[in-house]
Design a protein around this nucleic acid. Structure first.
Lengths: 150, 150
DNA sequence: CCCAAAATAGACATAAAAGTCCTTTGAAAA
DNA sequence: TTTTCAAAGGACTTTTATGTCTATTTTGGG
């Protein structure tokens, strides 16, 4: 819940695409190898991302997946929404049908806090941010030498 | 992940116990009915909470479960730890064996943020806080009239 | 035009989580 | 002491999530 394995795969794939630079076209096979996501499972995930219009797909020879929108526009929230488990956060943790307003369940205040901090994080983190942070980090660590893992 | 159904059940059960007042002894059957947790499943959950010493159990006729420690000491983090899925947060979201320090994965900074805000929430929220907030809320809403749901 | 590469689609398989059932053990009350 | 209630423990089942396989469609290249 909140973030499952499939969600993480989606985040990985999108992040990887974003790191390949503007409009890079990457095949599912390549993506799967580089991100270590089971290839057939990845293709299911990619379809959802295509439907949500976060990526564009190119069928046939030389095809693949591509981000065509500005990276700033693609947030973690958007990716999670595309994977379709938003409703999880909306259910009352105490199992009440009606919870909130005048009659919040005992867990309601705490749950709301969690929810808003989670949504805050997810909505403020976009692919551009991830990319910049990572590129900067690679630059800094290249100054110190050392090998890149994996 | 982060918080699964079983975790939520544990939070519900502990919260319910905390609301019953100091040292209330509640049977598994009662707990299950009031919290709407499948009774046999609940008893498994309670065993874990007993082992973690968050509650004490009383076997035999008239037995049940009881919180004997100060409510301030029992945090959501403690409850989640008792349920045993702490390791989830520690794994690299990008699937790298070694991630962090000199060579963080592209998702590392964002993931760390999420982790620390989640842990901050879980460790700062304790049963006393939940109880007080709820009691206060009930008082306030009683002034306005209206029925309690569920 | 035909072949190969690559996404799409959906059926199938496996693993993990959630839930149920049955037996045993312990303690209180009759 | 016997009965009865309730936790402990474990085997089993069901459901959901994850992963695999096999075809079908689409597209570019020879």
């Amino acid at each position: 819940m909140l973030v499952n394995q499939t969600d993480i795969y989606a985040l990985r794939a999108m992040t990887f695409l974003a790191l390949q630079g503007a409009d890079a076209l990457v095949s599912s096979k390549d993506l799967a190898e580089k991100t270590r996501i089971p290839s057939h499972y990845l293709s299911k995930i990619m379809r959802r991302l295509v439907e949500a219009e976060l990526v564009v797909s190119q069928k046939g020879h030389g095809g693949g997946f591509q981000i065509v929108r500005p990276l700033e526009e693609i947030t973690i929230e958007g990716i999670l929404d595309a994977m379709g488990d938003k409703h999880e956060l909306e259910k009352c943790a105490f199992g009440w049908e009606k919870c909130g307003g005048e009659h919040p369940c005992p867990l309601h205040p705490a749950w709301s806090e969690l929810k808003s901090s989670f949504v805050g994080w997810a909505s403020s983190t976009n692919l551009s941010k991830l990319r910049n942070a990572h590129i900067q980090q690679r630059f800094l660590s290249s100054l110190g030498g050392g090998d890149l893992p994996e």
